[in-house]
Amino acid sequence: MSTETGTTHGKSTETMTVREAIREAMREEMQRDEDVFLMGEDVGLFGGVFDVSNGLLEDFGEERVKDTPISEAGFLGAGVGAAATGSRPIVEIMFSDFMGVAMEQTMNQMAKMRYMFGGKTEMPITVRTTEGGGMGAASQHSGTVHTWFAHFPGIIAVAPGTPAAAKGLLKSAIRSDDPVFFFENKMIYEQSGEVPTDPDFTLPIGEANVEREGDDVTVIATQRLVGESLQAAEELDSELSVEVIDLRSLYPLDTETIVDSLEKTGRVIIADESPISYGTHAEVMARLMENGFYSLDAPPERIGVPDTHIPFSPSLEQEVLPSAADVTAAIRRLT
């Protein structure tokens, strides 16, 4: 799968954080297309609870940066209705845990309309929402739920692990005529990296990216765990050659890139913060089994939250959240 605009790694880049990359993506797309607008709780006056949309209200006015009531089912549904009638909404759901109250409009309207109507409607909506533990926000503000959406036919789900991926994928999401869920791990907003500044820069949805090449073992990671895996790889550099892939797109999934890596290394670890059972890991593993079974030298490993909710107490939270140490331990077990 590819978007209209291909990858353009422009010459000029700028160092920016994930937060800034997301903000710039929205700013550029709102400048490019007046049908694009942002709505959600506290996205305007407040600037977003994680400061992501700060400044957009000043630039685009309250018609295009709309503060909503605390009414996820209502405004997500309104986003679906607006998308079906020619607008291109970006809807922010403050914490992905809140999707629980807006699932109806997501699973039965947003995801199904195009198909049920025989392809006779577009659904160009982007839902941005935050995931992940690590800030003592406890179970109802820390979940990683993206597997649900990747599982649900009709929805595209992306979860970037770097600033460049955040910008490039969000711009593609906004331009897409399909509903795209864009999952932001809230612990990497401050992570910085080089991001192309060309307003035509986008990244194709459905492509994973090899962030670090290696020969001995592959870590297929998402979101925060991309950085954690790169750190683990760095620490093991003298002993082992670790390949790290940012999966980027949960659905569609880039089978080719991950199978190519498996064929090279023969050993795979899948690191994703969703709960392990029935998680994103399982789908990645299934693709590897189906397409690269005979290249496996060892059983693949899954790193994720061990099927608990995210506890409040920092010591408990640390216990369940996967980190570089978990990746390192898994690599040791496999090699």
């Binding site: 309104a78 607006a82 998308a83 309207q109």
Partner: peptide, 20 residues
């Protein structure tokens, strides 16, 4: 097929019309 799903969509269509 979902009872009560239409009104949010209508609100969204009205929002679209108002914005344009």
């Amino acid at each position: 097929g979902i009872v009560g799903a239409g009104p949010p969509l209508a609100t969204g269509a009205a929002l679209s019309a108002a914005q344009k």
